[in-house]
Design a binder for these strands. Sequence first.
DNA 1: TCTAGTGTTATACATATATATAACACCAAG
DNA 2: CTTGGTGTTATATATATGTATAACACTAGA
Lengths: 121, 121
Amino acid sequence: MDNDWNDNQPIYRQLRDRVIAMILEGVLNEGDPLPSVRNVAAEFRVNPLTVLKAYQQLADEQIVEKRRGMGMYINTGARKLLLAAERQRFLKEQWPAIYATIQRLGLVPADLLSPSPTTER
Amino acid sequence: MDNDWNDNQPIYRQLRDRVIAMILEGVLNEGDPLPSVRNVAAEFRVNPLTVLKAYQQLADEQIVEKRRGMGMYINTGARKLLLAAERQRFLKEQWPAIYATIQRLGLVPADLLSPSPTTER
DNA sequence: TCTAGTGTTATACATATATATAACACCAAG
DNA sequence: CTTGGTGTTATATATATGTATAACACTAGA
């Protein structure tokens, strides 16, 4: 409900990532309909075209299926497809730069990856 | 010399990050001049204005100092300033989302910290 | 003074992103 | 058929980003 947009990334891509996150987290399951373009646009106070662009990308990636006049539905196999694709994308395209930044800043990767540093046994 | 631009980020910001990385890594030291706008533009086949925009940001952040007709020089204290500022920025603005993605994808420290990427699962 | 190297500004143009408004095409349900 | 919900398209506008070209202002050094 809040505007938590990150200026580093276009809104339509953040919307796409949001849907992907919901699928991976099980908030949305295969066969479920996506929230409608108009609803999302209203909820986040964003232009319907921006939402459509995000959804169009998901359709291009075979993650959702369009049904005329009804809405867009999450494809069967979407979760499995996503887990593999997103993992590879993250490890190849994002993590190397992130890891370099961590080292550059003198941070310890193991500390960042441990869930709660304070309650260490 | 390679074009390693990331479409997720404007070039001028990537140029800024590149300079910051060079300072943190000790490639550039306090008092050193930055590579000139024209040189960088030529080297990376980028518009001089784009480089200028990156350098202007660094000047705004008190990291470099302009000397008329001579160039831009890294301020004393820049490294210390950067370490603190970039650490905070990274931990507050970037790491939370990155960490969420890691968990969402079911990645474990072994996947991220080992030199060889894919481990059996 | 002249030259060559700095950063800087001015125009003009192209593309990507996002908005506002409105209308169209499709489908289920009344 | 009408209504209200889908996705979709069409115009027009604004801003950010990036390019191309050219010129200006300053400085060190020959």
